[in-house]
Every structure is written in C-alpha cells, then in structure tokens.
Design a protein around this nucleic acid. Sequence first.
DNA 1: CCGATACGCATTTTT
DNA 2: TGCGTATCGG
Length: 826
Amino acid sequence: MNYLDELNESQRAAVLYNEGPSLVIAGAGSGKTRVLTYKIAYLLEQGYLPSSILALTFTNKAAREMKERIARQVGPEARRLWMGTFHSIFSRILRKESAVLGFTPNFTIYDSSDSKNLLKTIIKEKGFDEKTYKPGSVQSHISNAKNHLVLPLAYASNPQLLQADASMKMPKIYEIYQEYWNRCRQSDAMDFDDLLVYTFILFHNFPEVCRRYAEQFRYVLVDEYQDTNFAQHSIVQQLTSVYQQVCVVGDDAQSIYSFRGANIENILKFTKIYPNARLFKLEQNYRSTQNIVRAANSLIEKNSEQIRKEVFSEKAEGDRIQVFSAYSDIEEGEIVANQLQRLHLREHEDFRDFAILYRTNAQSRIFEEALRKRSVPYRIYGGLSFYQRKEIKDLIAYFRLAVNSHDEEAFKRVLNYPARGIGDTTLKKLQAAAVERRVSLWTVLEEPLTYGVSINKGTHAKLQGFRALIETFRAAALEKDAYELGAQVVRESGIMADLCQNNDPENLSRRENVDELVTGLHDFVATRQEEGNEHIYLTDFLSEVSLLTDQDNERDDEEAKVTLMTIHSAKGLEFRNVFIVGMEEELFPAAQSVQNYKALEEERRLFYVALTRAEERCYLSYAKSRFKYGKTEFSAPSRFLKDINPRYLDLPAEDRLQRQVDEGASRFRRQQEGGSLFGHSGTDGYGSAGFGNSSWEGHVGGNRSATRSGASAPSATFPSSGASRPEGHRKAQLFGSSAPRHLTRVSSTAGTSSGNASAASSASASSAQVGGVSLCVGHQIEHERFGRGEVIRLEGTGDNCKATVRFQHAGEKQLLLKFARFKVVG
DNA sequence: CCGATACGCATTTTT
DNA sequence: TGCGTATCGG
C-alpha cells in the first residue's frame, strides 16, 4: 500500500476510484503511466484476478513498459494481465474465435503495403485508371470507412459517401471496397483495420461471445484515449457492457493522430457517453520547468475545443524559450548545431539529452549535415523499418505461405522470387482464373487444369515445383518450431543462394538482415520456451511480427547520441534540451492545415506536444528561406510563435519589432478562425455520431462467401470451419523484449555447480538439478538475455523445474530451466 | 528479365 | 531537387 504515498492527491483519487467509469485527463508529464500502473496494482490488491483486467495501449512499447512497471510492483502475476495494443489483444481474441467469422486461427495480417498492393491489383482488374483511382487514396477511404465500422454494403448504400466519392472523381470506390473485402477473406487475411472491424462484428453478431469477454474483463483500462477511433471506442463499449468498469486515460491536448482516424470527440464526449463517469484531472507537470509549462499553456489556450485544465509545474522557473531566426535552412542547421554543441561543452549536457524535432522528415538532412560536420553523434528515427526491407518481406512471405497458403499477397511476392521462370503471363493466367472462379491463387495452382488455366508443360512443371516447395514448408510448419522452420526456409527457398550470387555491399547487408531475422526467430523461440511453452510454431512468430514496428526492435544505444525525429514520433518522450525547428508558415502549421480550423488546431496541439517534451531548455527556430522541391522558397515565421505569450520567449531583436506591427492583424485573424468554428461538422464525411446500427447490420460477409478451398463460410450463418490447430495463447511480450540482444550464447550446462541438490518436492524447492547444473534459491545467475539476477524461487523437478529470478535490470522472470540459457555465477 | 529513362509527386504514420 | 515507380526496349 506504500506506493499510494508516491502519488499526489489527484493521482491517488484517480487510482482509488473504482465505482464505475472514469476519465483521467492527464496533462503532459503529469505521471499518467504511473497512475495507470498503480491503478492496476491497486486493483490486483483489491482482489481482481490478473486475467480479469484488460489494459489497452496504442504501442507495443507502451504496453511493454507498463507491464514491466507493474511486474516490479506486484511480481510475476503481472504476466497474466491482458495488456497490449488494441491490435494485438484483438488479434489474440480473433485467432481464438476465428471460426465463427469464417477465418482460420492462422489468418494472415496484411500490413499496409500488402493492402495497397491488393488494391492496386483490384483497380487494374476492374479496368479503372490508376491515375484517378490512386491506390493510396482509395486505401485511406476504405480505412476511414472501416474505422467508422462501415462495411462494404453499407458503404454502397450510403448516399453521402457515394456523393463524396463522386465529387472526388472516384465514384466506384464502393466497388473496390467490396472486392477488397472479399479478397481479404478469400486470402484468410485481415488488414490492421479489420482487426478492429472483425472484433466489433464478433461481439455484435455473437452476443454470447461478447458476454463471455465482457464478463471476463471486469475492469478495462485504455491509455491514450484521445487517439482512439470510432471502432476502438465502440469495442470498448462492448467490452464494458457487463460491468461498466472502465478507466480511460488521455490528454485531449495531445491528440495528433486524426489523420489516422483518431477521433478527439471520443475523449471530449466521454462523460456524455458514460453519464455517471467521474472525471479526474492530473494537472501537475513533473517534467518541465515552469516557464515551459506556462508557455505551452498559453499556446494551447488558443484552441477552442478542449477540456479546460490548468497544468502547473513546481520545478524551477527555468530559462525562457529562445527563438532563433535564420536566413536559410542551412543557417538554421548551423545555429542549432552550434547551440547544441555549446551546451554540450559549456554545460556538459550529454548528447542523449538533446532532441531536434521537426514537422516533416525531409527537414532532417540539414541537421544531419550540420551535426556531422561537428562530429556530433546523432540518431535519426523514422527510416525504413526492418520489416519493410525487401529481403525481410520476401522471407516473411514464405513464412506466411507456409502457414496460410491462400495468402494472395505473399503468393504473388514469391511466386517468382527467387527467379524460377514463372513470368508475368503465367501469373496473369492464374490470377484471371482465380478471380473468375472466386478462389485463391493457391487453389488454382493446385489444379490448374480444373480451373482452365492453359499453360505448357514446362510452365506446369515449374508451377508444381513451387507448389511442392511450399508444401514442404507447410508440412514442416506442423512439426518444426519456428526457428527450425525459419532456418529451413532460408536455406531451401533459394533466397540465401540468391543473396550469395555476388558480394556487393547491397547483398552483404541483405544477408546480414536475413541472419538477423533468423536470430530473432531463435530468440523468440528461446524466450517462449523459457516461459514454459513447449512448441513454438512459426504461426506464433508471424502473428506477433506482423504487429511489430521497428521501434519495438530498438536496441538500447551504447553511445550517447542526439535524437532527430518528427514531433509525432516524439510523443510520450522527454529530453532535457529540445530544439523545435522549421517554425514557419506552410511548414508548421503545414500548408494543408491552414484552411480548416480543426486541422489547424491539431497542428497547434502538435506544437504543444513538441514544447512539452522539454524538461529544461527549449529552443524554437525558423528559416526565412528554405530549399524545397528544388526551389528556394520564402516564408514567414509560424503563426504559432505568436500564440505563445511573449513573456516566456526570448525573441530575436528584429522579431520583437515586427511583432508590434503584427499584433493587431493576428488578433483579427484569430477572431476569424474562431468565427468559422461552428460552420464545419467534420471533414471526413462521417458525422461523429451517425454510425449506429444500420450501417453494418448483418453483413459480416458483405460478400457472398469465403470460398477458400479449405474453409468456406457463407455470409448469413457461420458454421465452424474446422479450425486447423488448437492454439495455446501467447503472451503479448515481444521477442527480444527490452534486453540487449547481442550477448554471447551461454549454454546452460556450462555453469558452475555447487553440490548437494536436495530432492526437490513437486511444489516448491530450495534447490534443483537440471542438466548437470544444480541451482539453489539465492544463487546468482548470468542469463544470456536478461543479464544478472538472483534465484528467488524454484518449483517442480527435473525437466519441469521452473525458477523465478529477479534480474537486476530486466525485472522478475520465470524461467523453465530446461530451456533457459544462463550460467550460475555465485 | 533486367536496365535505362521518364514521370510525377512530395505532412504526420502508434497498428 | 531527389526519390520511387512505371514503362519500354534490348
């Protein structure tokens, strides 16, 4: 109970309140995660079972961090909590309940490039012009619809949407949407949005399933609620329909993801949807100086739509925010780099305590160059992710096919890679037959003649060769573990051979990446086994890896480096010293945002997020000219500079003069912005409340059927389609977790032994003997991935012996000694 | 099947 | 300007 002392009054109130829905508005740096973790700890203490608590986050990272913090509080039982991203938790549920929806438990998760490619294919098939029907644009329309739970049939009969599409010269989007929907089902695949949509459908169409989960989850917590979309919001409602015990945490002032469907209304109107909800506000900022907090307050005040709050800091007043004016983007880079270096040399600020934040990725180059020139180490976030690399995608495509051969996108990707003489023409023939007969490409491949594909003998042989290859993997997938199978695929698919054709640096790095993936597989299997799971199949790896981003793979950096990133990706982070650069009109706010006040307010929130990343010092800079698209463009300082009360700023002399002139004009403009406030009702064509029942009612299928050869499911009813393999549930922990990944392998037989192992009882023992190593409670061990730790508990005997180890850095873990890789060090 | 060339596009991106 | 993609030619 002592942890309650570590909370301030409002934090404690939020933690202790337990009698119904609650909304916690957590100002920047106000200890939001602390409240969430302590609240969960408190619930556990109150007797809630870990498995009855569901905590949803947006990022794997957030889930992982929270899990670790809770584990520190309450020990290993934290592992039984249902804590993870919306997508990972829902995919876990969907894999279990897949049959009634007409999917198998091994369904593929399409990433956005898969879905874009599929859309491209469909657009071509339908003979639409790709210039008018840009795949990316169609994709975002469809995504938007899904985020609003509008299924194809509802879309096709929604005059508003049809008209909006028509006015964008894409009147046939509904048709593409329908086909896309069918094709995903046919491929036994869901895209990211589908994970939400189908969860909603599952709960809606199968009330008994909904009830089962709603009864299991006696308490639901949601992090970053301002970023939820309508679908997520609706599912939370479904899940809390029994107990109404829900706590959502967020900050409307930090809602910056509307372009991804996040709906700020969800948080603004929470107390209307749950009329008996209690509202808590966390207003003390523990992160930033008073000056920074006040500056940020004075900025966000200019927004009209928000939950009023008074964020304050009790830290030192701190320096004013210094504003730098540069003549050019290059000079801006110089100024920032100079100031950064000055702080490093004079104030001994560590490089890792600096961040340079920008609106667009394109701005990074200038700063890279300036830093490189000064030999300042830096790290840029937001490059291509590991999983986006060609060789990795190729390999994963094989994995996917091994698990789900109906996966159309994976199929097309590797049918002729490495080259096996199956050209475009052949693929087109297969594709045509598949579309015609509404079956998967794989089904056609199995019996080309039945489906009327006319090909010559040679091609036929090649196709059957490919089929045999995949069949081998498929058979192996049922027996081998993920690592063994992965290694086999690397060997036998011919990818490695292809990458070994020559030794140019390109291929070299690709080989390294492939090796890294295999190592990742190995770690994944090892981690799972240590946790007590016997068989770790490739499908387990895939279901996790498809929801992973590169940020989840981050290695803790040895070297101190300056951080360069977009403001979006800086959300949730903090740095002692922050440079916010490119404070110019048409850049920040982005040119596209200035016409519509909602977008402009979002940009302002984005700036608010940027400011509130800073703990000690914050700098703003702008350039009067900037090289853009091959031309030098001139622009005015950002209007946002004028939104900050000048007493918190240190302005360049010229600007101070100019400001007096501008003052009147800017006040006038603000009135105008405010004036248009009530005119708009959202720009996405989806009213915020208009998506009740009728829009998705009764068509899971929307399509006529899921005509996969193996498992077909008509749309009206959902017969169980023999789920192929019962699947044990995995925890949502990430492979590689947060531990350093490059430790040398230590065999568990190589440890020192320390004699007399007493016969361990089946329940609990003080010592154990496994594989020639004896281990006692109190022993220090050195684990391959988790590092140093002390054995605090031993359970079971022989092969089944399980040790609970408290690691110095990795927290408490349970290890199955049979699999764990460690050595005894004392 | 690959390479050269032209074209068009260019916020942000938790999953 | 500089990249990624689309298309054509050898």
